[in-house]
Amino acid sequence: MSDILLILFTLLFPVLLLYLKERVRFMAKWSTLIVCYIAGLALGNIGILPASASALLDTLSSVAVAISIPLLLFSVDIKKWKELSGKAILAFVLAALSVSLVSGIAYAFFRTKSAESANVAGLLVGLYTGGTPNLAAIKTALNVDKNVYLAVHTSDIVLSAIYLLIVMSIAKPILKHILPLKNWDGNIASPENLSFTTRFSDYFRKGLWKKIVSGFGLALAIVGVSLGVSMLVPPDFQTMVTILLITSMALAASFVPRIRTLPMTFATGEYFLYVFAVAVGAMGNITQIFNSAGTYFIYVAIVLFGSFVLHAALCALFNIDVDTMLIVSTSAICSPPFVGVVAVSLKARKLILPGITTGIIGYAVGNYLGIALAQLFKAIGG
């Protein structure tokens, strides 16, 4: 396969998926991100890519994740965070603290079993504070081995599904014995500028393209400036500094109302995550992924369920009610799009907005926390 065809496939396969999800009922049931990973893995393991394709795919994945960060963060409204109840903010802080502590324990246990243990801890802290965007960004910032990354992400997909089943079924009946109960039922509006149900056809609504291009252009400018500034630091730290600068500049831009309300920025950021997924998947070696899957499956399980148990214990200590704890835990571990279904299942609809907002906070702080803790663990481990 030529370089041009590879670039076209990486960029256009997610477009085809988004088109089909809107028009084919069967396709609507599948996660676009997972299908992109599978397609990438299939492409990279059927023997049609030359050895030189790895460098091109690496460039494509790095560019895609860099552009996705500002687009995902432009719609963050930091000023509205102060409207959250103290309990929701505290529950989020305790969730971030829990995953950081448990990741540190997991790192210490696995450091002799995996040379990437510190990086994996950083990946999981970012993932279980924010979500997949943070996982992708931290992978790039820390230059995590692509096969390790895919093993971790695959493990998370399986274990997060189990986590959601637990949260929506037996978690509340068990935790209500140690956490207080509170009535949170009733309807509440979702944030106007954040939609997790954007359709492919929305891109073709009249009058939107100028604003969509403006958001994309601003994202490119932020990436360009960040790359330029990163040249001032030693080469080993340039990628990490670039990701942190992009995150910081995007959050600063979100304070400008005209930028924060640009349409389709979040959806466009998701599209670039899908491009990243295809590119990273195509670089993966299925044999190596399965060979290391057992180790990283256990690693991820310890961090996910260990941090959940610790979070519940800390919330009990601070008298946070069971629904708030579970909703905030969902927003941190599974990201904002899952808050609604969990809130409905728990009959806690009034917590949809706080849950989504704490999840957005996680998107904003996940890169900083994951990268910082990975570097700390490396320093401690020598």
Results as ranks from 00 to 15, higher is better:
residue 134 N to T: 05
residue 143 N to S: 13
residue 127 L to T: 14
residue 102 V to K: 00
residue 119 N to S: 14
residue 130 G to Y: 00
residue 137 A to L: 06
residue 124 L to W: 04
residue 119 N to E: 10
residue 109 F to T: 13
residue 100 S to Q: 04
residue 115 A to I: 10
residue 107 Y to N: 10
residue 134 N to Q: 14
residue 117 S to T: 10
residue 109 F to D: 02
residue 135 L to C: 11
residue 128 Y to C: 02
residue 129 T to L: 07
residue 113 K to R: 15
residue 121 A to K: 02
residue 118 A to K: 06
residue 130 G to E: 05
residue 105 I to G: 11
residue 120 V to A: 12
residue 111 R to Y: 07
residue 105 I to T: 08
residue 126 G to F: 01
residue 132 T to W: 07
residue 125 V to P: 09
residue 143 N to K: 15
residue 100 S to C: 14
residue 142 L to Q: 01
residue 111 R to N: 12
residue 135 L to H: 06
residue 119 N to Y: 09
residue 98 S to Y: 05
residue 128 Y to S: 00
residue 99 V to R: 00
residue 104 G to A: 09
residue 119 N to H: 13
residue 107 Y to D: 04
residue 114 S to K: 07
residue 133 P to A: 12
residue 108 A to G: 12
residue 107 Y to A: 08
residue 127 L to G: 08
residue 121 A to P: 08
residue 130 G to W: 01
residue 139 K to D: 14
residue 130 G to Q: 04
residue 140 T to G: 12
residue 134 N to S: 14
residue 135 L to R: 02
residue 116 E to Y: 10
residue 111 R to W: 01
residue 100 S to H: 06
residue 99 V to I: 08
residue 105 I to A: 13
residue 134 N to D: 10
residue 128 Y to V: 00
residue 133 P to R: 00
residue 106 A to N: 05
residue 99 V to C: 04
residue 116 E to V: 06
residue 102 V to E: 02
residue 103 S to M: 04
residue 136 A to H: 13
residue 141 A to H: 01
residue 131 G to R: 03
residue 140 T to N: 15
residue 123 L to P: 08
residue 99 V to D: 01
residue 137 A to S: 13
residue 109 F to G: 05
residue 129 T to P: 11
residue 102 V to D: 03
residue 140 T to I: 11
residue 129 T to R: 02
residue 111 R to S: 13
residue 139 K to E: 15
residue 116 E to D: 15
residue 98 S to G: 10
residue 136 A to R: 06
residue 99 V to Y: 00
residue 123 L to F: 10
residue 125 V to D: 01
residue 109 F to V: 15
residue 141 A to M: 03
residue 139 K to C: 12
residue 125 V to S: 00
residue 113 K to G: 13
residue 108 A to H: 06
residue 109 F to S: 12
residue 133 P to C: 10
residue 106 A to P: 07
residue 102 V to C: 09
residue 103 S to E: 04
residue 123 L to G: 05
residue 123 L to A: 12
residue 127 L to M: 13
residue 101 L to F: 11
residue 101 L to I: 15
residue 98 S to F: 04
residue 134 N to M: 11
residue 140 T to C: 11
residue 128 Y to R: 00
residue 131 G to E: 03
residue 106 A to M: 02
residue 132 T to G: 11
residue 112 T to L: 14
residue 142 L to F: 08
